[in-house]
């Protein structure tokens, strides 16, 4: 079963990369733009922390690690779920009908059939930078790295859930662009540790809108300042949200009326 899905995904991925490579210059400009944006913000963090020494109690390397981990979760979600951005078109034109008659789960197709090549390329230097910063942390242990990877995984489950909710919204309302952009802006608030926010914003961003769980918890774990309770909370929250998103997806699917003629 998994093998079959992997094979299908591989075909989708190759097709998607070939399509993107047709627009080589546009791809190149996007790649340069993404790298400049990433470097500029990192440079801003560097300038800021060089002058102030600490931000919300975190030094330069720690703050950069928060920024890089945010980018890791963000890029991974975009790499895997880029197709979500195109789902509205499938719904309003009735192309989604074809998803439903194929011998695989329509959610799988709607979520993962258009991986983004640019994010795959930018992932390599990003991972290198994270490993470099790990080496700079005196308190790092094998266990803390394991917990970091585990929490990045839970962050991806939360990201998956949000993308499923966005897809469901597209079926129910045929509107998606605003919802996905709003998700990205909310997630973007996790570029810095949630500790920078004043209460009640901090609690809302940590526990209600799970930006803190997704973006800040992994780094806090690697720094050794995240409690076991919060790790457990992260796991329970991500599984519950994922289950809820599947319920909403099934609900939306039952209300889908084909738009095709």
């Amino acid at each position: 079963m998994l093998k079959k899905y992997f094979k299908v995904w591989l075909i989708f991925a190759i097709n998607s990369f070939q399509t993107q490579l047709n627009l080589r210059w546009t791809m190149l400009v996007f790649l340069i733009g993404k790298m400049i944006r990433f470097a500029m913000f990192a440079f801003f963090v560097f300038i800021l922390l060089s002058n102030t020494k600490a931000l919300a109690g975190y030094n330069l390397n720690e703050t950069l690690l928060f920024y890089l981990s945010f980018n890791l979760v963000d890029m991974l979600s975009q790499l895997i779920f880029r197709e979500v951005y195109r789902f509205r078109y499938a719904v309003v034109t009735g192309t989604f009908d074809f998803y439903l008659i194929k011998p695989y789960n329509p959610l799988f197709r709607a979520l993962t059939s258009g991986p983004d090549l640019i994010d795959l390329v930018t992932l390599v230097p990003l991972l290198g930078a994270i490993v470099y910063l790990f080496n700079q942390l005196p308190q790092i242990t094998a266990l803390s790295i394991f917990v970091y990877i585990f929490l990045i995984f839970t962050a991806l489950i939360i990201a998956t859930s949000f993308h499923i909710l966005v897809l469901s919204l597209a079926i129910l309302t045929t509107e998606i662009d605003s919802a996905i952009l709003m998700y990205r802006d909310i997630a973007g608030m996790g570029r810095f540790p949630v500790d920078i926010y004043k209460e009640p914003f901090r609690s809302v961003l940590t526990f209600l809108i799970p930006v803190g769980i997704m973006m800040s918890f992994p780094v806090k774990a690697v720094l050794g300042i995240l409690s076991v309770t919060n790790i457990a909370y992260s796991l329970i929250f991500s599984i519950t949200l994922f289950y809820f998103s599947l319920l909403v997806w099934n609900f939306a699917l039952r209300r889908y009326s084909s738009a095709s003629s």
């Binding site: 800021l48 102030t52 931000l55 973007g188 608030m189 810095f192 500790d195 920078i196 926010y197 004043k198």
Partner: peptide, 10 residues
């Protein structure tokens, strides 16, 4: 809000 709180914390 993000930009405001970066500077507020600073």
């Amino acid at each position: 809000l993000l930009v405001y709180f970066i500077w507020w914390t600073t």
